[in-house]
Design a protein around this nucleic acid. Structure first.
Lengths: 212, 212, 212, 212
DNA sequence: GATGAATGAGTTTTCATTCAT
DNA sequence: CATGAATGAAAACTCATTCAT
């Protein structure tokens, strides 16, 4: 960065981006508790206290990060909507699952949204987030609608909400830490951890029955 | 408590129970971060340092709490299995959903199991937990089998895993904090937060299609 | 141990011995800070609180341990006095050094005697220790006297005190921890750590000049 | 201090100095165990947690303190080297002993260097210390060389190492706590505690025989 | 007399947050 | 406006010591 003080909007945005990137890097390797101002400050090119000018809590940073992830996901969904004329149920489920595979952090962040993120967030920030989030939902509806044109509105909504809840619950059970894996191995049961992509697709197939 | 020092096994169990209860009380009102030795110590009738005799980390306490919740849930599933000869798909889904309604903390704890609980837990404790958890799964299988006798093994397993992932994801979106609700309201969208019990039942109905 | 309560003197002695042994084991592997009631309690066959019946502080245990080490050393010196009729200066120094080599813990304990051991000790215990210690000094005098019969009393005393101070200071610089060694290596200087036995002997040779 | 925040290098040094001074004060009156962050924090004009900015462990503080003591000692040795053209053996020993008398804490710290200081120190810090320490040794060599010009290199080295080990061992036995003195008195033996300065000189006289 | 549960005091350590520069 | 030094609060953790059983 070749400026010392962020005067213009663009510079402010650049700083914000750097903070978000630092936050993302930390979260990608560790867990929520590893994300704190000290760590973020050390990852950015500027000082910890400077971050306060842009965000008041780490939760607000994570909320912005989540929003970005949501947008990326929406983008992917949109892209796949546009690039196919029609899809078999199976092909749809597979492709839809793929959009989640490519945006895994979205699922991690979503799962802590309700318990952690909102905890230390201003109501304004949270409201803004919710508004954004809901505004983004249309492309998802349109996607399902396109490939299941005869499905009712209601069943499309049912598919979307059921599948998203499902995928939210599926994520952690398919992404176990080495320690978890070791514990399962030692437990004596021969439980095989599913592959996220295929389990996701399978679940979607079942849930997609509502679209018939 | 009418003893000062836990000498017999029963008394030790009593102490453990008190710790677990304190932990449960704190977690029921707040979130994981509110659960720490200081808070637990203040909720019990004995000193903070005494807790170290029974548990080395708060995660191990929560893991035990989760195990209890799992057992309670299993107990409820069993009870409903035994108390009905046969059930319609809808009745089954409603009753099955009800077992979750009555054990909501199970879902909260489950959702942090993968990210938080295992973090500061000895491998031994975690292994023991996994062993217990897996040993408990049979009654669930038997329950579904009883009411869907013609369903294949595979589809029963699919129902169980899909529905449990679903319900795990559903829980937080139907249990929003006042702040979340306010934020949604302020966002301008008229999104209605579903009732957990009915949303759960609805989702199960969809997923139960795999049992046909 | 096949008794639950130490009634007889012999049993009391046996307990004391066990405590001392535990203490020695811990000190041999670690440092003074590793020696505490908790650790000692865990190394013995009885409870931590039972130790209070025999010793009030860990320093008193260490003081007893030191006394034992002194006695062992004296014993070795005596043995070598008795087993030789006469010795050359060099042979004497080598053999004398050897008595220290075989009682290295004595040197470690001695070096903390003044700073640590006396700190948390009753005056009675300390007095008793001093009395014992001084009573033990005669054999050392006799040893030097035997092999240097023409040396004056004064020069014998000078040799004893100078050599014992020397050996006390020598010990740590010839027994470096792996970390110290690594640090020296990394420092770039090619300092070679002396071997205790030979450095000790060499120093004694110099100091023994007083006996000529 | 007329600044609230150490911004310039000089101010940072000033803080460091204050920490070292606090540490020195505590150590001069008590023992190593009395030196801890809490105590140091209370002795300085700033908060305990601020010290962490300057030192990570108390051992690193003590190591720096030791280094300062070494430098002071070296300075004194140098000074006496420069201020005399030649010295009799006795005068040399007396003056050399005097450099130790004036830097007694050096001896206390040295005696715990091997057991305590290195324990909780980063390898880097320790390496840096060793490097400094060794770099400082030349003036000592030069001092002995100047006053014993005909002595061989080897015997000069022998004098230096033997005398330094000796003085290290001598220190504690001539600096007994009131309690130790009382215990000796009560023991009944009429052991007279030597005066450090003269005992040191006497020992040096003996050891200096190697320089003849 | 022996035990080990319970306690409390003491220390370390880590961060969010403030504020002098 | 940016910084990073300083702070204080909070939590973890460990033992010596006491005391009910």
């Amino acid at each position: 960065m070749d400026f010392k003080r962020a005067r213009t909007n663009a510079q402010v945005e650049e700083r914000r981006r750097e903070i978000l990137q630092a936050c993302a890097d930390i979260y990608d390797q560790g867990d929520v508790d590893d994300v704190h101002f000290k760590a973020i400050g050390e990852k950015t090119s500027f000082a910890r206290s400077t971050i306060y000018k842009y965000y008041s809590t780490k939760e607000e940073i994570l909320l912005d990060l989540l929003l970005i992830d949501v947008m990326n996901w929406i983008y992917d969904v949109r892209e796949f909507t546009d690039s196919h004329e029609s899809l078999s149920k199976e092909a749809f489920c597979k492709t839809f699952a793929q959009t989640y595979v490519e945006n895994e952090r979205l699922l991690r962040l979503m799962s802590i949204l309700y318990s952690v993120l909102e905890k230390n967030c201003s109501l304004e920030k949270l409201t803004e987030f919710k508004r954004n989030l809901m505004g983004f939902m249309t492309p998802i509806y349109e996607c399902v609608k396109k490939f299941f044109p005869s499905a009712s509105d209601e069943s499309i909504q049912a598919f979307i909400s059921t599948s998203s809840n499902y995928v939210l619950g599926l994520y952690p059970s398919t992404h176990m830490s080495p320690k978890q894996k070791k514990a399962i191995e030692l437990s004596g049961y021969d439980y095989e951890i599913s592959d996220f992509a295929s389990a996701c697709c399978q679940g979607f197939m079942i849930i997609a029955s509502v679209l018939d």
